[in-house]
Design a protein around this nucleic acid. Structure first.
Lengths: 147, 147
DNA sequence: CACAATTATATTGCACACAATTTGATGTCA
DNA sequence: TGACATCAAATTGTGTGCAATATAATTGTG
């Protein structure tokens, strides 16, 4: 009676599911490294951008992340409450909210340096196949979005 | 003054981000196909499992999806309200809730058959590289979880 | 300079995810 | 059989995502 689906409609066969599932697995794997410093995984992605370039606008954070203000505004408020960043209106254009790292937020960059290496190990990949996989996925993402 | 981060801490160089980002892109790409039939993307994943095997328990849905009852219970209630499934306690073990497709839910499988092909095109991949990518991601997911 | 578009962010409402706890049913063993 | 561990779901609380709408500041145009 197990009326089996055609393979194109099997969960395990689908690329989308392997991506969905790997994304959750990454978030879980990062959690053990991030929780001790009080960051969630999406907050960590924001920190990556701020460590690289402080004082970005909400838009300048959302563009690379593909996130809009509906997601970022409450996330950034939580990060402000937690003491990682401050939110200040731009002096010359009051429409813009700029996000600045606090000293505490800046200091976390040192603690974060060990994370990529740890995740590389956990992923079971070598550097070459990781870069390869990354580039393929970036390209698939671009392709899906452009249509 | 743009104090640039080391490459290991750059958002764009990270595999985790390309996965995170591709997962969102897939969800968006599926949306245009699923919205007309009233399904969300996670609900569609549940339907894939039910089309393949009806009457599963909540656990039997959650295991392949790596989702727990905290996510599935409200999701399944929404699907019940929308008329895709019914939720019934197992007659022999009242602890178990079994999920059954309604006739309407079953009938959607036909409409869904066209989706994988459409997404394959949108992804810009050929079948070989899709399977290859899928298998690599499945393996990375497994590796991250087993830690 | 008035004033209608545009821009940048914020708000609201809904749908996941997931940790932690609770509730109710089943199994076990003294 | 009656206390107790176990098990499956459901509940609660917090944190994303995202569509749609609102608000306020700036820009462009006549």
């Amino acid at each position: 009676m197990p009326d089996t689906s055609p393979p194109e409609l099997k969960l395990e066969t689908q690329l989308c599911f392997s991506v969905y599932s790997a994304a959750h697995a990454f978030a879980q794997a990062y959690k053990q490294h991030l929780e001790p410093m009080g960051l969630t995984y999406p907050q960590y992605l924001v920190m990556l951008l701020l460590w690289d370039q402080d004082g970005r606008s909400v838009n300048a954070l959302g563009q690379p992340l593909h996130l809009d203000s509906g997601t970022l505004t409450p996330l950034l408020k939580r990060m402000e409450k937690a003491g990682f960043v401050t939110r200040q209106r731009d002096a010359h254009d009051e429409r813009i909210t700029r996000i600045y790292l606090t000293p505490h937020g800046k200091s976390l960059q040192d603690k974060a340096r060990a994370i990529p290496e740890a995740l590389l190990c956990a992923s079971g990949l070598n550097l070459d196949s990781l870069f390869d996989l990354r580039d393929q996925l970036t390209e698939v993402g671009r392709s899906l979005r452009e249509k």
